[in-house]
Amino acid sequence: MECAVTVRMEPQVSKTKVFPGIKVPPSDIKQQLANLMDKERADVMFSVSGEMFAAHKIVLVMRSPVFKAQLCRPLSQTGKQPIVIEDMQTDVFRAFLYFIYTDLMKVHGDLEENCERKNCQMIHHLLVAADRYDVARLKLLCESILCKNLDVKNVATTLALADQHQCDSLKDACIEFMSCLSTMDDLVATQGYQDLAKTSPSILADAKERIAKLHKC
């Protein structure tokens, strides 16, 4: 009887060599999308207080259900004449359009993490625009920034805004902030509080009722 024996030898490796990695640059798709915000291949034009803005129908339709309904309706005249945007400042629409393209908030050159109190009025306007065109993430970003920057001077105005645009979490934050004040005198003296008392007394009545309940807890 003959037997054949095969001996397999493991390859000898003298040492492990580390090969240089391949550096992958960060994604620049947001910048690329921002670069589209010119008249190159634009098929939609907006007129805001006489200033013209170029845009792309496919981006608008993808980002806003309101734009989708407006631009995809039968016999739409989009592209033949500009869409006139009423009741919105040019700076607000520019920031709104920038968010539509990039998913980034940019107010007066500052990105969202740098939007401090100096820009809170602009954030108010952006929230209104986001609600108007049903851009949910922008609306929540605006709510978050306003919530972080509540103070005695702006809380009444912010409460009115939150109530008008169904921002329940922001409204709750305003009422909780008011409930934590040691005295209401400074708040009552603000123009925002006085305007709210004249135009929407029911909002104040509801806030006072909820504050009273919080104090009992």
Rank of each mutant, 00 (worst) to 15 (best):
L111D: 15
K118V: 09
S64Y: 00
T78V: 10
E209G: 14
T183H: 13
L170K: 05
S27P: 04
Q81I: 12
S14C: 06
D38S: 07
T90F: 00
E2K: 15
Y133H: 07
M9I: 13
V135A: 01
F177I: 00
V61S: 00
V48I: 11
D185K: 10
T78H: 08
D131C: 10
K17V: 15
E112A: 12
L138R: 09
F93Q: 06
E209K: 15
M105E: 06
A95G: 13
L104W: 12
F177S: 02
A54Q: 02
I58T: 06
E2N: 13
A95W: 03
K198W: 08
D163V: 03
T190V: 05
K208D: 02
Q12H: 15
D206I: 00
P65M: 05
C115E: 08
F46R: 03
V59P: 14
G21T: 05
L97Q: 03
C72D: 05
N35T: 01
A69D: 08
A34W: 04
K213E: 04
P26N: 01
L71T: 07
P82T: 12
T190N: 07
P20H: 10
S47Q: 14
T16C: 06
M1I: 11
V48W: 01
T16S: 11
E51A: 05
Q164E: 07
L60R: 03
F99G: 05
V13T: 07
T157H: 07
D163K: 08
M52Q: 01
C142D: 07
P201T: 11
A4K: 15
G21Y: 02
F67S: 11
K39A: 15
C3M: 12
M105N: 09
L71F: 09
L71C: 10
